[in-house]
Design a protein around this nucleic acid. Structure first.
Lengths: 204, 204
DNA sequence: TAGATTGTTAATCGATTAACAATC
DNA sequence: TAGATTGTTAATCGATTAACAATC
């Protein structure tokens, strides 16, 4: 299995959403239809699909069910990925209630917070655990992924602990730039950047 | 003012976060420092900064306060952008409480929902208004931007209304692919895609 | 058949990296 | 001075688009 770029991953995920929701009634779909809905070039769509090993049918396009399944396999939606959410504020709890995660193999095991009023309670069927227990649980359960939804001032400290005890991937929802060793990956989910990029399309 | 690519916008926003939080104590910063923290090439950082019209100082780097301000100007953080949030669920309310928005000129005026138990209440100091009133308010206040945080099955219908009454930019937090005219911009905030991209960095 | 669509190659475009003179 | 850093050009790399033969 060849490595694919982040841009391809992003497009394949969108194709999947498109097949799952927007075009769920159809049995076939043409590259030009996908391209049209996502404002892409149709040959780019065919190239992406070729990466998934799916063959189309002349005059008809691709079999929706087959394409959907192949994208799932290519992107590893059924591989189980265990995750801790750190920060049980509004965003953290919104994410734990996001039911779709489990369809993509993203298994959120627990939330962590240092607010005594929250500790011990449940959100979306998951326990809110004291931050003090984080290091121990990361290493014991061998957690590699965390979702960071703490306030900005706490982000670096929590990161340092998580990294020290073995975390490798940090999905950073805080607006801070985290210092981590080269072996750790930070994915910055920066809402301000997203909004500005959206506005940038004014030149349409 | 020249148009800049979305990639540049994303990096400049991250530089800004870095200056605002991570390096707030320093008066100077070198391109190599920024590059190191964000895992980029230093000449790329210098090119980005040059786009903002900021000149550095040999042997010292850039003046933090000046660079920060120039990024704000280049990206238009002080231009006021009025927004409606549609869908007052967990994610919609999490976003309205995101205090940072106003620092970037993003002014959320109200939330919309069709749940009678929510309508009339407030969240984060903003009214939750009935969805029925959306078309009228979009055209009356001349709203161009909406944040879409409704359930997937409602996404297309709400979009059609919003577009009909004048919305031009849709920040789509639902996992659906929306059908819109070419004149309308959809920015897909797809969390699944983000997570998969993060995991993709395994080849580090 | 004629038209629609794929699969794929070659051409183009844009973004990143390498390199280095200038200079504080 | 020597070392560090910028600003910028040229080279490279990667991603997208154009084009079109194949064929259902």
């Amino acid at each position: 299995m060849t490595a694919i770029s982040n841009k391809v991953i992003n497009r394949l995920t969108l194709y999947h959403c498109l097949l799952k929701y927007t075009c769920k009634g159809n049995s076939f779909i043409a590259s030009s239809k996908i391209a049209d809905l996502l404002d892409l070039d149709d040959s780019l769509v065919r190239k992406d699909i070729a990466l998934c090993g799916v063959l189309g049918h002349k005059k008809q396009g691709y079999v929706v069910a087959e394409l959907k399944k192949s994208i799932e396999q290519k992107l590893g939606f059924s591989d189980r990925k265990e995750v801790f959410i750190i920060g049980a504020g509004r965003l953290g709890t919104a994410l734990i209630h996001y039911a779709d995660f489990k369809d993509y193999g993203i298994d959120i095991l627990a939330l962590f917070d240092n607010n005594p009023n929250k500790i011990g309670k449940e959100e979306g069927g998951k326990r809110i655990i004291s931050l003090e227990k984080l290091p121990n649980l990361i290493s014991r359960i061998n957690i590699k992924n965390i979702i960071l939804t703490v306030p900005p001032y706490a982000a670096q400290e929590v990161t340092d602990y998580a990294v020290k005890y073995g975390v490798r991937f940090i999905w950073n929802f805080t607006p801070t730039v985290l210092k981590v060793p080269k072996s750790v990956t930070v994915y910055n989910e920066n809402v301000i950047s997203s909004f500005m990029q959206m506005q940038n399309s004014k030149n349409k």
